[in-house]
């Protein structure tokens, strides 16, 4: 029982990261229909932004800098690499994000090297005991910040005019133009949000484990699974999907082996794409032309 609880608790913390990576994919996909292969590396850039800021700022503010770094990296990618290719079709736009991901990763490597980095947790002190299972305090911050990001995004899409305009662009970009919505501005907002959410949550995780420049690749793939589970549409289900993935990973590494847990996840990714591309949602996202 305690073991099960422990598995679930730590899955909550790790799942929050996968989920927020997935939300990053979903926000961009909803707006543009594309898959951003640089998602993982942008989040890592955010985490390193926080590492740098932590030298002069308290941890919470450093995480804010991490969010900002992620947002800036994402927006720069949109304007420098994707916007010039807007007439080229999704295939080329998708390939270019792969290139951007490599660029970000190698720049980080040139600056920070391949070693792990860390900074102080937001609240000091030992792990918290929950019915016999224990979880570091920082993990609660990770879960909390992911939840805050989710609620903020949900409110943004539901309640604000800009949020609704963003959804409107996704539904019918011609009509969005007709009512006077600026598509480039909206895409900028979407990329900024995507980078900020992924960057902030990953940065929060840095004090409990650590961050390396190469982490983006696996994170990106796992976030992608979360996004599939959310049907590339629903951010709530994406977050839940992230938790499911983390749970599978935890159970697999406990009952099979740590070495094979990632393999199992990526096989799951392929199986999902083939068998249930709509994820936890009821129907496949309608193809947009």
């Amino acid at each position: 029982m305690e073991v099960a609880l422990q598995l679930v608790l730590s899955a909550l913390a790790v799942g929050a990261i996968y989920g927020s990576m997935g939300i990053g994919y979903v926000v961009i996909h909803r707006m543009t229909g594309m898959v951003n292969f640089a998602q993982g590396d942008i989040a890592v850039a955010g985490a390193f932004g926080a590492v740098v800021a932590s030298a002069v700022l308290p941890p919470l503010a450093a995480i804010g800098v991490g969010a900002l770094t992620g947002a800036v990296a994402s927006v720069l990618m949109y304007h420098l690499a994707i916007f010039p290719l807007r007439k080229q079709g999704l295939l080329v736009q998708t390939i270019v994000t792969l290139g951007v991901g490599i660029v970000i990763r190698s720049i980080l490597q040139l600056i920070f090297g391949t070693g792990p980095r860390q900074f102080d947790p937001i609240t000091a002190g030992g792990p918290v005991n929950v019915f016999g299972a224990s979880l570091p305090q920082q993990a609660f911050w990770v879960i909390g910040i992911a939840l805050i990001a989710y609620v903020a995004l949900a409110l943004f899409f539901e309640r604000t005019l800009t949020g609704k305009a963003l959804s409107a662009c996704a539904v019918n970009s011609y009509a969005a133009g007709v009512v006077g919505i600026n598509l480039t501005f909206m895409a900028t907002v979407a990329f900024a949000l995507s980078g900020a959410v992924a960057g902030a949550v990953l940065a929060t995780q840095v004090p409990t484990s650590f961050i390396t420049v190469g982490a983006g690749f696996a994170l990106g793939l796992k976030g992608f699974i979360a996004a599939i589970l959310g049907g590339f549409d629903k951010i709530g289900l994406t977050l839940a999907g992230g938790f499911l993935i983390a749970l599978v990973e935890n159970v697999a590494s406990r009952s099979i082996s740590t070495a094979h847990s990632e393999t199992i996840l990526f096989v799951l990714l392929i199986a999902l794409l083939i068998l249930r591309p709509q994820g936890l949602t009821r129907k496949l996202v309608v193809e947009r032309v």
Binding site: S167, A168, Y174, A175, A176, V178
Partner: peptide, 13 residues
């Protein structure tokens, strides 16, 4: 303001 041909409402809103 234009009321476009074929309505063009935001169908899923």
């Amino acid at each position: 303001v234009l009321v476009p041909e074929g309505r063009q409402v935001f169908s899923s809103l």
